[in-house]
């Protein structure tokens, strides 16, 4: 297996107020940590209001990756950005629960479209709060 594959950064795409991250590789721990700080930096740089993380390709989420995702959601919310995880495979969801891992503060949606709706709703509600 090509080790260079793992050194590549996971791309973060900005669309409007949101960042979109699609995790397409089986991440080792360092890559997961790198992604976490990459996303937070990007939130800081772009003042994004929401982050959509697509994990539909991930065949497993263990305690480390789960913890990375929920940690990131907490950190992002401190930076006033919401995180929505989309596309979790059913087998991954079952395993996460059996593993005993809770992911407080993490919002999930079935797919990209629903996740985007969640984020848009959140931003709209915030705008309304100003009046």
């Amino acid at each position: 297996m090509n080790t260079d594959l793992y050194e590549k950064k996971i791309p973060i795409i900005k669309i409007g107020n949101f960042l979109i991250v699609s995790i397409q590789v089986d991440m080792h721990d360092k890559l997961a940590i790198q992604l976490q700080s990459q996303i937070l930096e990007e939130i800081g740089k772009t003042s994004a209001k929401g982050v959509l993380i697509d994990i539909s390709v991930l065949e497993m989420v263990d305690s480390f990756i789960g913890r990375m995702l929920s940690g990131m959601a907490t950190m992002a919310s401190i930076m006033d950005a919401a995180v929505v995880i989309v596309g979790m495979q059913p087998a991954v969801a079952i395993t996460l629960v059996e593993l005993g891992l809770e992911m407080p503060g993490v919002d999930t949606a079935l797919n990209m479209e629903k996740g985007m709706e969640m984020l848009e709703k959140r931003v709209r509600n915030e705008d309304n709060d100003l009046f």
Binding site: Q89, T95, L99
Partner: peptide, 14 residues
Amino acid sequence: GIVDQTRVTTAVSE
């Protein structure tokens, strides 16, 4: 099955 595959993979990952 896919769920058992995922269980085993996650367990060994830990």
